[in-house]
Design a protein around this nucleic acid. Structure first.
Lengths: 129, 129
DNA sequence: CCTTACCTTCCACTAGACTGGAAGGTAAGG
DNA sequence: CCTTACCTTCCAGTCTAGTGGAAGGTAAGG
C-alpha cells in the first residue's frame, strides 16, 4: 500500500504518516523501486492504536514509549497502566485548576457586570479587573 | 527606576519586562544617558494590572487590547466585560472537554487495572488501550 | 505529448509566554 | 586595574502535533 492509501485507511493525512515516521512512532517503511513508501496493511493497526492513545489524551511521546516496549517483544501492560494513571491524575489537576480559575473569573465578571463605569479609576486602568 | 528594580517591584524578570515592551503592553521606556531604561514608579500599577489579567487567564493580547483602550483615554469597562464573559464560556468549554476526557480515561484505566496481561494480543499492541 | 494525481525531501511556520545565551557597554567598590 | 553586577541588543529555543509549500520525480489515461 502506498502512503495515500494507508493514510485514507487510517483517516490521517500523508503528512501525518511521514511525521509519525520522523517521530519514531512508525518504523521506516519499505520502499518500492521508485522510492515510494510501501506499507503492509497491518500498519493500520498501529495507526489505530496511536489514535486510541491520542483519544485518551496521551502525547505522541507517551504513545511512542508504549510502542517501543511492544516492539522489543514485551507486553506493555504495566507501562500502559502507569501512563493511564498518571493521565488521570494530570486531568484531575488540570480540571481543578481550571475550575478554580473559573470561580475567580466568575467573581470578577459578576462584579464587572454590577459595577458603574463612572467609578472607574484610570490609575488602576480598570476597576473591575 | 532601572529595569531590575522595576522587575523586582513587580515580581517579574527583566527579560519579561523587555518582552512586554516588545509586545506593546508597556510603552517604550524613557532612557537614561547611558541607554538604560528608566521607569516611573507608576509603571508597577500597569504591571500589576497585567498580572491580574493573567491571573484571570487572559492572554497578553487580550490584556493588551484593554490597555490600548485605556491608553487612548477611554474607560475599557465594556471591553473588559466582554472579555471576561468570553473567558467564562471558554473555561466552561475547556472544563467540559477535559471532564469528558477524564471519563474516557477513567473507563480505560479501570479496564486496564482489572485486565489480565496474559490475554494481551500483540497484534493489537495493547488490549487495554 | 499533456494533464492529473500521486509520490519524494526539506525547510519554515503555527500558538503563547517567555527563557537562554552571546557579545558587549557601564558604574561602583576595593 | 579588576571584579561584580548591572545594563544593552539580537538570535534562537522551549513545547505539541502537525500543516504549508517549494522543487522535483513518476505513473496512468486520453
Amino acid at each position: 500500500m502506498r502512503i495515500g492509501d494507508m493514510a485514507a485507511a487510517a483517516g490521517l493525512t500523508t503528512k501525518t504518516l511521514r511525521y509519525y515516521e520522523d517521530r519514531g512512532l512508525l518504523p521506516a517503511a519499505d520502499r518500492t523501486a521508485n522510492g515510494y513508501r510501501d506499507y503492509v496493511p497491518e500498519t493500520v493497526n498501529r495507526l489505530e492504536f496511536i489514535r486510541r492513545g491520542r483519544t485518551a489524551g496521551l502525547t505522541l511521546d507517551q504513545i511512542g514509549s508504549i510502542l517501543a516496549v511492544r516492539d522489543i517483544g514485551q507486553a506493555p501492560c504495566i507501562h500502559v497502566r502507569e501512563l493511564l494513571g498518571k493521565q488521570l491524575s494530570d486531568l484531575d489537576a488540570r480540571i481543578a485548576e481550571l475550575t478554580g480559575l473559573r470561580a475567580t473569573v466568575a467573581a470578577v465578571s459578576e462584579a464587572a457586570a454590577a459595577g458603574d463605569p463612572a467609578s472607574c479609576d484610570p490609575g488602576r486602568i480598570c476597576s473591575y479587573l
